[in-house]
Simulated scan of single mutants.
Amino acid sequence: MSARWQRIAVQTAGEAYAAAYAERFRRLAETGADVHGEATFVAALVAPPARVLDAGCGTGRVAVRLHELGYDVVGVDVDASMVAEARAAAPHLDWRIGDLAALDLAEAFDLVVVAGNTLPLLDEGTLGAACDRLAAHTAPGGTVVAGFGLDGDHLPGDCPVTPLAEVDAAMAAAGLAGVDRWSTWTGEPFAEGGGYVVASYRRPA
């Protein structure tokens, strides 16, 4: 498990952080809040029944919604307790435990979505390896979409900032070309100096 992720998760939500995380979004949904921005964003990029990898799936919120929309989805996360919550909520879906920096699923996807500040929460020194493995699991002509905070206001706990330029460079080194960027999962244009980014990268056909 990512030491950085586990430390920050416990720091912000306690030892039962996986259940707390799942419950937080259940309560938001019950109030009528839209908790499916990432899945809606994906649906605007590729039509079902495309094959989608939810990389860093956590408790499965995004993957479950993508399945409901008709996508063939696999969820993977390094944290077994988060994956256990996902399995409990949707036992019929394909959930796997895996470290993004060493991911080897022996299959490729039309789109890989990396939400939930997954990239900044990687352990130090593993961004390049993670981007390489994300690229390896993206089909030719496919897309990787990653959303993450660029300042302390948009990151959990004391998670350090991973500059967008570092992510762009790691994706490029992995063979993924930058395509576009937005400031939110609802598609607002990105402005330099903003606190959050959703960036897309494409593997050549």
Rank of each mutant, 00 (worst) to 15 (best):
R4M: 08
A9Y: 09
Q11I: 05
E15K: 08
A16S: 14
A18Q: 02
A22V: 02
A22W: 11
F25D: 05
G32Y: 15
D34E: 07
D34H: 09
V35H: 01
H36R: 02
A39I: 02
A44V: 10
V46T: 15
V46G: 14
V46F: 12
V46I: 13
P48G: 12
P49F: 03
V52E: 07
V52P: 15
D54Y: 00
A55N: 04
A55L: 00
G58A: 09
R61I: 14
V64S: 01
L69A: 07
G70D: 14
G75K: 09
G75M: 10
V78P: 07
A80L: 03
A86M: 12
L93G: 14
I97R: 09
D99N: 15
A101G: 14
A102W: 11
V114R: 08
T118Y: 12
G125L: 03
G128I: 09
A130G: 14
C131A: 15
D132F: 00
L134H: 13
A135Q: 00
A136C: 13
P140F: 11
G142H: 05
D151V: 02
G157E: 10
P160N: 07
L164P: 08
E166H: 13
D168I: 05
A173V: 03
G175W: 11
G175M: 12
G175L: 08
A177N: 04
V179N: 07
D180H: 14
W182P: 09
A191Q: 11
G193I: 00
G194Y: 02
A199G: 11
P204D: 05
